[in-house]
Design a protein around this nucleic acid. Sequence first.
DNA 1: GACACAGTTCTACCATACCGAACTATTATG
DNA 2: CATAATAGTTCGGTATGGTAGAACTGTGTC
Lengths: 268, 268
Amino acid sequence: MAQKESDLVKTTSLSLQIIDEIQTRNGTTLPELVDYLDLAKSTVHRHLTTLRHHGYVVKEGEQYHIGLKFHNRGEYARTRKKSYRLAAEAVQGLAETTNEEVDFLVVNDGRAVAVHTSYHRNSMYQEEVIHPTETAQHSGTYYYLHSIAGGKSLLAEFSDEKIGRIIDQWGLPKRTENTHTSRADLFKDINQIREYGVALSDEEYADGLRAIGRRVLSPDGSVLGAISLSAPAYRLNKDITEEEVTEHLTHTVDKLEEKLVTSVTLSD
Amino acid sequence: MAQKESDLVKTTSLSLQIIDEIQTRNGTTLPELVDYLDLAKSTVHRHLTTLRHHGYVVKEGEQYHIGLKFHNRGEYARTRKKSYRLAAEAVQGLAETTNEEVDFLVVNDGRAVAVHTSYHRNSMYQEEVIHPTETAQHSGTYYYLHSIAGGKSLLAEFSDEKIGRIIDQWGLPKRTENTHTSRADLFKDINQIREYGVALSDEEYADGLRAIGRRVLSPDGSVLGAISLSAPAYRLNKDITEEEVTEHLTHTVDKLEEKLVTSVTLSD
DNA sequence: GACACAGTTCTACCATACCGAACTATTATG
DNA sequence: CATAATAGTTCGGTATGGTAGAACTGTGTC
């Protein structure tokens, strides 16, 4: 995946870069893009026209925005596999029994993507409440593996060499005071996870947020993803104990893995 | 949006066509693509490499698949606007009170896209149960406006000329025996909707499926989208009457429109 | 061990993506 | 109301780089 730039189609890369730029800028105008990308107005315009034609970009007044075609493709991607859909059900079930935020994560090029997120009354934009500085996006978000519970439970399944490569690629960015930012710290934690089977994040991703995660294995033994439960630190060990949550989580993952065995066809 | 092909970036269009192909074929291989697109193997390969590099395509064995980057972009697109997020809450609320499937739709180039779908225990893959022939995808799906309740409630807001242009572009494809496939039929229905403010679909989209929809107006009077409720025909007027549902729906939309006035900043 | 098949690399050619400049359309400003 | 400023659009010439095609690697199969 680490490609020499020269092997890639530059024109397509430019189009995709424009998409990137539109999203990170929360919508942008043609002149802004021209300015930033340092390209001819006509060139950028042609790319925008093309993307618009295909539904990937929409124009609202002078602002160009990400189009809903992405939503179509994205929904397809996350429900493509039977196993992902079963994971979604498991997530929903666990969210309902615990009434906390539950996520299903998948590894994607050394990072985690939230594929399914629980949907229940009080957690919907909960994250937004906890850290109002963050954008509201949640499902679909990319996370560094070392800073979240589910991510660490995934790392624990990989060989030390593979973990090393991922760290080389992405580093160990610090999110909070508690984030493991040294290899030593992280590996110590990972070895514990390998022993106990469950990963904890104690305000390592965000202040005030605690989470528990466990990886999900496919019938063939490969890593499918991870399910994690997040809750405000004050609520864990008060409304519900960590032991209880761990048990619920383990049970959920075990059940899911059983279902995967019986109902998943090859390559799903 | 109806562009001359010559104004578009062909290279980008090809990349996007490859994406299309991958999705419609539910994953595909390089040779299949070469065969279908009638291009050199090296060319297709280069495009795939590029898309893969950017996360839009993933390779699983010999199969190329839609990547989760689309999910990231898609979630961004559907939660970008405050108004869409408020609509999502309204959808969820209505789904909980009625315990039926509720959707929020938006117009996109003459068709409707489901932006938010209710999430509740029994409806999650309900659609799949009703028409097992359909793929499971739901949120993110494109619909023809004339065949669904929400879509018709949107058409009713447009001028007859605009409706005419949409029909010219997309036709009036028949989904079931009840689908309005003639302009006369459709306009008769639309005029009723204009009068009553609520659109009905009586098994016009799918056999056995009845739905009620109502458009949502932005504070500035423009059309934001539509909320619709779908239920198996046998359940409507048994567990719950059409009048009750209509009232719930109208109430939900009214409340949403109120909220939009107070909490939505310009251009949201 | 040879065959089939997916994927990858390389090179030469020419299609076409890019630029720049001229143009229209829209909105703001005196 | 004229002028300026801004966004967007169109067009033709140039050279970049996307494409084709052949050669190559790698993997699995009979």
